[in-house]
Simulated scan of single mutants.
Amino acid sequence: MLDGLTLDQMRVFLTVAESGSFRAAAMRLSRVQSAISHAIGNLEAQLAVELFDRSGHRPQLTPAGATLLADVKALLIKVDALRARAGGLGRGVELEITVALDPQFPLPILGRALGVLCESYPSVAFRTLSTPLGASFEALLKGGCDLAISGIDLINPAIELEALMKVRRAAVAAAGHPLAQTDQPLGTAMLADHIQIVGEDPSALTGQRDYGVVSPSRWRVADNITKKTLILSGVGWGSLPLWMIERELRDGDLVRLPVAAFAKDGETTVQTYLAHRVDRPLGPAGTAFREALLAALPNAHPIR
């Protein structure tokens, strides 16, 4: 009967399949070989299928055994995850961390921090929300996330800010775009005949303000990937994080524009911040993520 199946039988089955023999499985599990054979025999009787062909020198998985092995692996993974999550609950570890992320923050740095978090808290799920400008703070205030990474410094007594890094941005256009053909400072009059590709701000906090918008003719897009694609296609020009366009600048697909309203070489700098609710202290995994993120920043000092 299937109700009699035990996790131990399944682990024995998996160990025999992975090690290649009953003897090797017995050594790995620190049991006598007869106990391994007995466990497999009982499992086969309960499942009413032969899991191993024992006619040769070494036991070989039968077609039925190979099929059921995949199910057993999946089940044991879920059981281990359940145990890890239950252990985490006992220690007050979060089930999930949601971070509202401004898309201009360098994703490689985020990835390094998440790699550390995954090793330390493998049972904690991680979720990101793409939230430009004030949308990160809106998500935080409305309880839609645990942490926010933003490129603006809205002051709110309910939110604690921590400076992360400055992100360099540059005004660029495709190499064949008319604006790319001059090295003279580009003022409003020269930009007026060309479309500026700008990011849409969905936030009520900052949606009425334009950041870095200097051209009267503009197209709005929802994300930097679309923005970059349109600029590369020659539709218009715009400002993008340098970390996102290093290869295109190096290969000559994109050219910096000397926009007069920006700094030298059309560059602007945005200070980014890590934010969380004052009334909701970070749990163990959230604290570990914060420390890993700070440690992953350029020229970061070890977190003490």
Rank of each mutant, 00 (worst) to 15 (best):
H57A: 14
R58D: 05
P59M: 05
P59H: 03
P59Q: 08
P59I: 06
Q60P: 00
Q60Y: 01
L61W: 06
L61A: 14
L61Y: 09
L61M: 15
L61G: 15
T62N: 06
P63G: 05
P63Q: 10
A64P: 00
G65T: 07
L69N: 09
D71C: 10
D71Y: 13
D71S: 15
V72E: 04
V72N: 01
V72S: 04
K73H: 14
A74C: 00
L75H: 14
L75K: 11
L76S: 11
I77W: 02
K78C: 08
V79E: 13
V79Q: 14
D80A: 13
D80P: 02
A81Y: 01
A81D: 11
L82S: 13
R83D: 09
R83V: 14
A84W: 04
A84V: 02
A86W: 12
G87F: 00
G87M: 01
G88Q: 04
G88C: 08
L89E: 11
G90W: 04
G90K: 07
R91N: 02
G92C: 09
G92K: 08
V93N: 02
E94Y: 05
L95A: 13
I97F: 01
I97Y: 02
A100N: 08
L101Y: 13
L101K: 04
L101H: 10
D102C: 12
D102W: 07
P103A: 05
Q104L: 14
Q104N: 11
Q104Y: 08
F105I: 02
F105Q: 04
F105K: 03
L107W: 08
P108M: 07
P108F: 07
P108H: 12
I109S: 06
I109E: 05
L110I: 15
L110E: 03
G111K: 14
G111A: 15
R112K: 15
A113W: 03
A113D: 04
A113S: 12
A113M: 07
A113P: 06
L114E: 11
L114K: 07
G115R: 09
L117M: 05
E119N: 10
S120D: 08
S120M: 10
S120G: 00
S120P: 00
Y121S: 03
P122W: 06
P122I: 08
P122T: 06
S123P: 01
V124L: 03
V124Y: 02
V124F: 02
A125Q: 10
A125L: 08
F126G: 00
F126H: 07
F126R: 09
T128C: 06
T128F: 07
T128A: 11
T128E: 08
L129R: 14
L129P: 02
L129D: 03
T131G: 00
T131S: 13
T131Q: 11
